[in-house]
């Protein structure tokens, strides 16, 4: 409990809520290409609103190395 200066166990509510959100799929982040060509990180909702190109990995469809 000393690591984060926590005084009580219920000080960890925020972390518990974060974990619950993660497990329920309510917390997500993805890579997109920004207006300046640089990679940005945003939530799926933000990415949809922005209309920016999503560049996360599509497993199995992008051969990075030639066999």
């Amino acid at each position: 409990m000393g690591l984060f200066d926590k005084k009580k166990t219920d000080d960890c509510v925020d972390l518990g809520e974060a974990l619950a959100q993660t497990n329920s799929g309510r917390r997500e982040v993805e890579l997109v290409i920004g207006d300046d060509g640089e990679l940005e990180a945003m939530t799926p909702a933000e990415a949809e609103r922005s209309g920016k190109e999503k560049v996360g990995t599509t497993i199995g469809t992008k051969p990075y190395y030639a066999n």
Binding site: V29, E30, L31, P44, K54, V55, G56, T57, T58
Partner: peptide, 8 residues
């Protein structure tokens, strides 16, 4: 780490 989070 979900696939849409990363890219090589």
């Amino acid at each position: 780490i979900k696939p849409k989070q990363y890219r090589f």
